[in-house]
Design a protein around this nucleic acid. Sequence first.
DNA 1: CTGAAAGCGCTAACAA
DNA 2: TTGTTAGCGCTTTCAG
Lengths: 363, 363
Amino acid sequence: MVTINDIAAEVGVSRGTVDRVLNHRGRTSAATEKKIEEAAKRLGYQKGRAGAGLAARKKKLQFGFVYIDVKEASFHHIVYAAAKNKAEELSQYGVTVHYFAIHGLDESEMIRFREFVLGHPEISGWAVPGEYAREIRNIQSEQDRSTVPIITYNLDSVKPEDRLCYVGCDYRKAGRMACGLTALMSGTDARVLVISDDPGGVRSEKERLQGFREEMLHYPNIEIVRELYTEEREGLDAPMLKKRVRETLSEYPDITTVYLINPGDYSICNVVSEAAGNTKRVVITNDLVTDEQVAMIRDGRITATIDQEPELQGSRPLEILFDYLAMDRKPLNDWEKRKLSIIIRQNLDEDFHPLGEKYHLVH
Amino acid sequence: MVTINDIAAEVGVSRGTVDRVLNHRGRTSAATEKKIEEAAKRLGYQKGRAGAGLAARKKKLQFGFVYIDVKEASFHHIVYAAAKNKAEELSQYGVTVHYFAIHGLDESEMIRFREFVLGHPEISGWAVPGEYAREIRNIQSEQDRSTVPIITYNLDSVKPEDRLCYVGCDYRKAGRMACGLTALMSGTDARVLVISDDPGGVRSEKERLQGFREEMLHYPNIEIVRELYTEEREGLDAPMLKKRVRETLSEYPDITTVYLINPGDYSICNVVSEAAGNTKRVVITNDLVTDEQVAMIRDGRITATIDQEPELQGSRPLEILFDYLAMDRKPLNDWEKRKLSIIIRQNLDEDFHPLGEKYHLVH
DNA sequence: CTGAAAGCGCTAACAA
DNA sequence: TTGTTAGCGCTTTCAG
């Protein structure tokens, strides 16, 4: 392993100078810079994790972790729990994580968020759900501090140059998988009912539907019979939606498959299974996050679910920030794709998302 | 974070003494031992990764990695590639990995293996396919060196007390998943043909079949119509087996599903798809390891495959050894279960097993 | 602009 | 049986 000492010896300067050059701390002459950088490249220098880890403690790195804390957003509870876990691990390297919980979509939340960002200039790296990256970038450019890296997760709604890396799944692919499963489980002439929470604002749901449609091109006889969405401001239990689902299923008894893109409330599955009569329908959902869902997969109310590794969406952003700021390691790609896995009854682990229960969110 | 200095100060001894006690190096009095251990527990001491990582270099840890190098065992090529990758990463902590390739099942290989183990007394941790753990244990007990930890991977054919941890999947569960997929894709009255490489010696295949059968109890109308195995010493392309598959499929045209437990050669899928006529059959396989298989999933000759994370079976054993020997971290469980994932055309990543091609095995 | 030195947490070698 | 010291690779601070 080649160390900064080797480079110093090679070039004939002190360790300090090598450090200054390699970490762009300035106060070095162009001449030595050239020599040192050339030597570093020639010898294949890479910062060692052990030494850098030890020395990181005196940097006292501060990260900001923004997460969504809304009762029905179980996905984000898992994300948050995983982030806390990772933060605990990073604490031994002197890292402190500041959390900010977003409680809803109102303008007042954005103001609180803005204040939080402004109030924490000491933070040298952000991990945020994609939707909130824009706001941080705005503040940064107002202040010319745009070198502070941002990792987005779960959603990627910002230009690639505005974040260091996005950690999350490919929603289009999730949609294609749902269609593939439909073809395999309901046959290539499936008739599909699509149900989702109001997709007006949320891009992930549009993309999943788009992916589903895209894949349908390979299955010309699969048909989406109807798409049903929650009424705006309908509330969690969505009585209107349930009513329309019931009506639709009796109007189209030949519906073979229900693709539940993202219901706030999974009790909609009960409506589907009650309406079944003697026809057993295939029900496909996204994300495995609540106990209710687990029970539904177990007893067949949900046939299959497509999961997107929420734990890694919580832990990896912090890890990437640490690697970037303390270890001098840039992420390999600007999109760290999280795996989409298919869950059916037989691979439903008793301990599927073990972090979920370890932490309670205080609202 | 509480350090060994804190403990030394608390108890009123030197760091060296604390180190000796906490790492059981002997040469300490029972009295100080008690005081130090009590203080460590009280303060919640845990060895820091950064410091331990740096200091590990002077331990010059040596690990032994045993792998299977047989042309048709593509699974193990991936395992090996991942192990090399991890070894490279660990080299910065002063770790050296000694590899031993097993080329076959003959007795002479066992002798070579035995000589390798005997010839490397400096090795302080082993990572081996389960089948080979027994031999190492035997040698160890002959020499009273049974403290050297063994991590098994891929197969767990040794008593829990004879290894520190097993890294691999639950083959019974893999079988249950195959049955679950059968029910979902061919219906609950599926008629199944099971094909496998001679399962005489190999436990994983028996367990998968056992899991399949186990799950069949929940689907009383699923039936295994026939089981076909390669003749002993038949050779890779298995012409006899292919012939019998062809015959079986024409004898039982109502076979809906083929479960390929572990064919040495996937070209058997071609036989199945050629014999199809107008009936499209569901073909389920295990492990996604060759380009041929990828092509088959793409064009439908294979319907679904159940993967078991070969990369992690290569990297984790080394990581676990390092954590154990350098970081004082025991594995959380004595079985680190690897995830079983279902792969269909739509989640077949172009880059599914990216390590596979990075290394060439020299036979 | 550059060098020297101290220190992060831990281990190992040596001295007492 | 215990303490002391040096050093792993890197960062930081202070002198020059």
